[in-house]
Structures are given as C-alpha cells and as structure tokens.
C-alpha cells in the first residue's frame, strides 16, 4: 500500500509545480489585462490611450496588488482553498470557478464522445488492418490515416464547417444550442433540447474524430501485428479455440494494453478541449474560454483554465497507473 502514498505525493508535487510554472508563464506574457482592455476601448470608442487606461482601471478593480512573489503566494493559498480568483473579461468579477464549471460539461460532451468513438472505431479498424497486414486495404488505410492524423484540427474543422454547414446546410454553423431549444427546455421538452445539443455538437465531434481516429488505428495496427506474432496466439489456434475467442481474448486484449495509457492521458487532456475546434464553431467550452482569456489577457481565467487541464491530465495518468493493474496481471501489485 505504501506505493500509493508515494504516488499521491508525486501527484501533488506535479500539480504544484505545474501550477507554479503556469502562474509565472502567464504573468510573463507581454501585455496585461488593463492594457488589453484599454486597447479595446481605444479601438471601439476612439478614446486616447490615457483616457482608456483610466477607464479600464475603473472597470477592472480586481487586479492583484503587491509584488509578484506576494501575488504568487496569495494565488497558491487561494488555489488550494478552491478559489481561482475572478475574471475581468467576462462580466467583471465573475468567479473563474463558475465560468469554468459552466464550460466544462460542454467540452466534456464533445471530446468524450469524440474520444470514445475514435478510440473504438480506431481499435477495430486497426485490428482489421493488422489481420490484413500488407493487403491493399491495409496499405490504403495506412496512407489515408497518416494524412488525416497530420491535418491540423482547425483545418479539419474549417473544411467540415464549410461543406456540411455552409454548403449543404445540414448542421448549424456555430454555438452549443439554439435559443428556441432553451425555451423548449424551460417548457419541459427535454428531448427537443438534447436533440438540438447533439445537432450542434456533431461537427465539432466529427472534426475531432477525423484528426484523431488515424492515430488510434495505426497504434492498434502496430500493436496487433506484434501480438499476432506471439507464440501464445499460435498455441491458442493449435488448441482449437474458436477464432472469436482468439481475436478478443488473445489478440485484442493483449494488443490494447499498450494503448491504454495513452487513452487515459487523452481523457485527461480532454478537459482542455480543443481551442481551435471550439473557436471555429464558436462552441463555448473550455477551449473557447481559454482563447478569449488569452486575447483579453485575463490572467486568472487563463491560469484557471490551464490549471484544470493540468489537474485532469495528472489525475488521468494516476488512474491509468491504478487501473492498468486490473488489465495486465503482470503489473498487478499485491493489495
């Protein structure tokens, strides 16, 4: 049991270090929130910079005071108390926590769905490719996937948006749901709302899948090919086991093992969403919030969003370690 305490201490230190680094990196970025806001005012209302800066200061009175070391200490204390500060770019003074809490479910909806679909589909295709190793189907898909996996997310998103939203009009161009759907929900029509949400989420999910399915498929293909060469597979055939059992319990299970850790890490990264996909579909999840925060130099919101991602990834890695033992008896530790 001792190793789990050691593991937890490492988790804590990792999170602590990552948050510290985030704090200083964010603060080292050129520009500050007041400056960003003043620039915007100058641009919008044609004020002089001096005037705009005065106004900006009065709009955003929440900026940290004192030297940066004191600010850092205060931030850390507040962080571990669950207080991530307030935003200046959103309606001024909104707690960062509540902005993030409102955005996370939407990101999780999109990315979790996309991740599960691309993982499942990728694994199945990867296994088929491995079984047909060297065939035209296999090499064709291998080429296709090495192309799709190197497409940047925003390109995939733009192409899908253009084709399926603008040209064909099958899907909405932006947003998480329509106004009428929210009204319907208020009148108790849950189904209409859920349907509208799914309709809006389809293209963001598809963009994610298009980019990521190839990686899972190619990973599974490689790992399946090596498992297929293992003695225990040939020996299972010799013992007359039905091929279904061999495919699932002998090949599938052993081939997925090496992908499991990446899957858990991807689950962690999912809380970061995809900045580009959410930005292009104006999908207000964490990625979108993060993008806004960076533009506005909204320090606390930026740090909060980064911190969420860090914590999620570290916990994902921890879970991967803990759960791996259940899948692979070779690393199972004595209870």
């Amino acid at each position: 049991m001792k190793w789990i305490y050691r593991r937890l201490i490492i988790v804590f230190l990792t999170i602590y270090a990552a948050i510290t680094i985030t704090f200083f990196v964010v603060r080292a970025m050129p520009g500050d929130p007041i400056d960003a806001l003043a620039q915007e005012l100058v641009w919008k209302y044609h004020m002089s910079y001096e005037q705009a800066r005065q106004l900006a200061m009065s709009i955003a009175p929440f900026l940290p005071k004192g030297d940066i070391l004191h600010q850092y200490i205060r931030y850390m204390i507040n962080f571990f108390r669950g207080n991530l500060g307030v935003s200046i770019s959103y309606s001024t003074g909104t707690p960062v926590i509540s902005i993030l809490a409102a955005a996370i479910p939407w990101t999780v909806l999109v990315v979790a769905t996309a991740l599960i679909i691309s993982f499942t589909v990728g694994i199945l295709i990867g296994m088929v490719m491995a079984y047909k190793h060297g065939s035209k189907l296999d090499s064709g898909l291998a080429v296709l996937f090495s192309i799709t996996r190197s497409i940047p997310e925003y390109i995939a998103a733009i192409i899908l948006l253009w084709v399926f939203a603008f040209e064909l009009g099958w899907f909405p161009t932006r947003g998480r749901y329509d106004y009428w759907a929210l009204e319907a929900l208020k009148h108790g029509d849950v189904f209409a709302f859920v349907w509208d949400v799914m309709w809006h989420a389809t293209l963001p999910i598809l963009s994610w899948i298009v980019v990521h399915v190839g990686g899972w498929a190619l990973g599974m293909r490689g790992s399946t090919v090596s498992v297929l060469g293992e003695d225990f597979v040939h020996y299972a055939v010799a013992r007359g086991l039905p091929s279904r059992r061999i495919v699932v319990t002998y090949v599938g299970k052993n081939a997925i093992l090496p992908l499991f850790t990446s899957f858990m890490l991807a689950l962690g990264f999912m809380f970061g969403g995809s900045v580009f996909i959410e930005y292009i579909f104006s999908y207000q999840g964490i990625g979108w919030v993060l993008y806004q925060a960076i533009i506005e130099r909204d320090w606390f919101l930026m740090m909060g969003a980064f911190d969420i991602i860090v914590v999620a990834v570290v916990i994902g890695a921890l879970l991967a370690d803990l759960l791996y033992g259940f899948l692979d008896p070779r690393v199972r530790r004595p209870a």
Partner: peptide, 28 residues
C-alpha cells in the same frame, strides 16, 4: 496434441492457468 517449442511464451499473459484449461476443454 502437442507441446510447443517456444514454450515460455505460449500462455496468454492476461489469463490464469485454470482458464487455459477451461477454454481448451470448452472448445472441445
């Protein structure tokens, strides 16, 4: 039946020994 040459890696690492006997019997 036979005992394979590369015997050290002939068993499924994710299955207990008893399961190897069970599945072999079940398949027949």
């Amino acid at each position: 039946s036979y005992v394979p040459q590369a015997a050290l890696n002939a068993l499924n690492p994710t299955l207990k020994i008893i399961d190897h006997f069970m599945e072999t019997a079940k398949s027949h």
